[in-house]
């Protein structure tokens, strides 16, 4: 097994919500992330999928300490030296931030309209005091060039660029401090199909060149499958399943994964979509259910699921699942479509 870059143990992020009444206030918690453990290998891409409200973004941001985790450990392996990110404070944390970066979803609101492209890309260098003077310029040009940005445009402002170009500016900004770990939070979701392909290719090229490790969060399953080595499926603040991409897509072991896979619209009118219909919608994360969190919508629910919390366990090499009957039920993955190759 390759080196582990990040190990997350029992991560919890709870947001307090206060409701006041005549007798004072009661505090309840939105359990956005509620006990998640996993690891990310050096140089790999871990995909993270799940419905809106499942806690994908919160996980990404709490690892980066953009949101304070409530509980748990995040161990970052910085060239052999192990650092617990949740314990870092003040100066140490600020100094550490150069090793982790975030690429945002919306290329329009994530760039300051009053800064030139050069200043935007240079900001991580300046903020971490990694370079000064001419050296900043040199590195900005290098980062911009590797993101295929036209160097003549560095003095322009973001509004002069199209969505795809803006996203490349965002990527250049993220990679200039040579981070080890990059969170891509829906980074290609707002882009058109033809532009999305280019940005995905760029992210993969940069990974090959600089050895970045990505946590790739997206709701488009085929995009996640394309870029990720392993994929985690999240449901209501917890992981339902985590496995190598092909295993997860072709032989899912969790009913929720099965439902997700069956809902992918196939780009072929001959293959009819037969979605496993989930009853209702994702329940509220304020008072999560007893037992398995998925039991209200599961097709295979049994009495045990309603009371006992399923263990997160490894059922095959690298294939994790939180489910009671993982060994007894056969589930359907995506069907292989060798004959559907209609592109001429």
């Amino acid at each position: 097994m390759a080196d582990i870059l990040l190990e997350i143990k029992d991560l919890k992020v709870h947001f307090p919500i206060r409701s006041t009444n005549f007798f004072g206030g009661t505090t309840q918690y939105v359990k956005a992330v509620d006990g998640v453990s996993f690891y990310i290998e050096k140089g790999e891409t871990l995909g993270l999928v799940g419905e809106s409200g499942s806690g994908k973004t919160t996980i990404g941001r709490s690892i980066l300490r953009a949101i304070e985790p409530t509980e748990g450990q995040v161990t970052f392996n910085l060239d052999g030296q192990k650092v617990d990110l949740t314990q870092l404070q003040g100066k140490d944390l600020r100094a550490f931030r150069r090793h982790m970066q975030l690429i945002f979803q919306d290329p329009y609101s994530s760039l300051n309209p009053r800064m030139t492209v050069r200043d935007i890309i240079a900001e991580p260098l300046v903020a971490s005091k990694l370079a000064t003077g001419k050296e900043v310029d040199r590195q900005v040009r290098e980062a911009a060039a590797s993101c295929k940005l036209n160097l003549e445009y560095l003095r322009r402002f973001p509004h002069a660029f199209s969505g795809g170009q803006r996203q490349r500016i965002g990527i250049a900004r993220a990679l200039i401090s040579r981070p080890q770990f990059v969170v891509c939070d829906e980074s290609v979701s707002a882009l058109d199909v033809s532009i999305q392909a280019e940005v995905l290719n760029l992210l993969m090229d940069l990974q090959a060149e600089f050895g970045f490790t990505y946590l790739f969060i997206a709701h488009d399953l085929s995009v996640v499958a394309h870029i990720s080595k392993r994929v985690a499926v999240m449901y209501l603040g917890q992981f339902a399943e985590l496995a190598p991409t092909k295993q997860l897509f072709y032989t899912p072991r969790h009913p929720y994964t099965e439902a997700l896979m069956s809902a992918i619209p196939e780009v072929n009118p001959d293959v009819e979509m037969t979605p496993v219909s989930l009853k209702g919608e994702i329940p509220s994360p304020v008072n999560p259910l007893s037992g398995c969190r998925f039991h209200t919508r599961c097709l295979y629910v049994q009495d045990k699921c309603k009371t006992e919390i399923p263990q997160w366990r490894e059922i095959e090499d690298g294939h994790f699942v939180a489910r009671h009957f993982a060994d007894t039920l056969a589930l359907k993955g995506v069907t292989s479509l060798d004959s559907s190759d209609g592109m001429n």
Binding site: S194, Q196, T245, S336, L337
Partner: peptide, 13 residues
Amino acid sequence: QSLLRAIPHLDRL
């Protein structure tokens, strides 16, 4: 044709 080639496909991971 290029649009169809530009979308990720599960068969060609």
